[in-house]
Design a protein around this nucleic acid. Sequence first.
DNA 1: GAATATATTTTCGTCTAGCGAAAAATAACA
DNA 2: TGTTATTTTTCGCTAGACGAAAATATATTC
Lengths: 267, 267
Amino acid sequence: MSEADTKRSDYVDALARGLAVIEAFGRTTPELTLSEVAQITGMSPATARRNLHTLEELGFVKRHNKRFLLAPRILTLGSAYLQAANMDEAVLPELRRIVTLFGDAASMATLEGTEILYIAHFSELRAARRTASVGVTYPAYATSMGRILLAALPPAELAAYWREFRPAKLTDVTVTDRAELTAILEEARRAGYTVSVDQLDYGITSLAVPVKNEAGRVVAAINTSGYSPRLDATKLVEERLAELQVSAGRIAHLLARYPGLAHSLLG
Amino acid sequence: MSEADTKRSDYVDALARGLAVIEAFGRTTPELTLSEVAQITGMSPATARRNLHTLEELGFVKRHNKRFLLAPRILTLGSAYLQAANMDEAVLPELRRIVTLFGDAASMATLEGTEILYIAHFSELRAARRTASVGVTYPAYATSMGRILLAALPPAELAAYWREFRPAKLTDVTVTDRAELTAILEEARRAGYTVSVDQLDYGITSLAVPVKNEAGRVVAAINTSGYSPRLDATKLVEERLAELQVSAGRIAHLLARYPGLAHSLLG
DNA sequence: GAATATATTTTCGTCTAGCGAAAAATAACA
DNA sequence: TGTTATTTTTCGCTAGACGAAAATATATTC
């Protein structure tokens, strides 16, 4: 509509709409009625209905009485990615190693817009509060991995991030001040790691380091995290940083061996 | 086109096409060129291009030189399902418990057409051969969980299965004979468990039991599996069956508590 | 380094697939 | 029972998606 919006003809609106319907189902809204989907996506009931029925026919959505919900088949879409990226062979063993050494949980994430996206995760016990499983996103500014990834952004992209920056006090110690965050990012860049305590949610303490590709560009971050009351930030660094960096190095090394993973993480 | 194919107007072809493009990327073909996608999906190059560009714009696909590949964002589609189903809270702890007790790996799967679909998985070490991660599918007839699920099928649906049954000798001991399989299914139904050795691939031995919903209908299966040379089928049953059934019972119990999971597995 | 073959992008005319508005039917509620 | 909300269907319209084919770019071969 807007004049800046160059009329592109090689774009399939109907596909974008259908995917928007899938994304209408979220953690908070697992089951939706037709009109709810219409409302969330901004589509007319007729359009929402067509899309839902198409997805149902394809097996990605099921209907339980009058409510729609995602079906297990939706998982197949992501698994092709995981297999292609050799996540299980390249990344998971390292995360597992960290968890074996230190307990708690270890993850790998990449930056997706203003959010971090978990692409691998291993935890010994059920996470205390948030269970961070693969595919989940969290605001970058409030996580250790997010801060590592933001710190590595070229100036132009970081500027773009700040433009979209909409902080929220997720806990009462969440850093939401831009100047303060900038200082944290600079320190993270300088030191090559960062620790966050109770930033995303109460009880989560996390140490993250960057994972670089062959060209030296940061393409992902890995972390080790646990329950705050049991972990002192200083001790966390003393005890775990070295091994976490070893894992980051190994994963970085494997990026060369598994181009599927490397490419998928690239810019 | 065919007269049996009632002209349905509430179906969005463009969405089905777009999803087919995503599914064109598989374990064997992680990176595809435009023309490969066109060929796999049977679309014209122009159509394939439009869909790929749409997916790229939305962040689900990336381009590396002339090749397209799935982007991490594709994982978000499945994660809404996993969260809605409370997989991490309801299922994973039980699988973890089994692995803690016996080592190796434990999984949960459901039937999706002629295939089983892994909806949860936990493994201590990297699996010997196949790494069975969430979202992956395998032929039902060649897996212990698949046989449990087939055994529980109502006659009409089992008949439908046999109609689509296209067995392959995945190993030289894979049972592909229908009569022989029928006997295995009957025994599985009678006994409430089944063991398979080197059926899907060499080295995989697996014990599976059904998971039932409140109505007593089998909605999923869980298994414990390991490396064949280290496991004797008889001993596997003796040692692990009881605890596996405990877990199945607990998960069944949790289905009532987590309707998201229950509904998503229903019919 | 031409020449040939392949793959990708663009153009364009066609037409249908998908759209929304509104009516009809159904279900929920009071 | 009446009333409201939700879902489904109908239908006319047109934008949007399609395929064929040309134009361009890229890779391969000799």
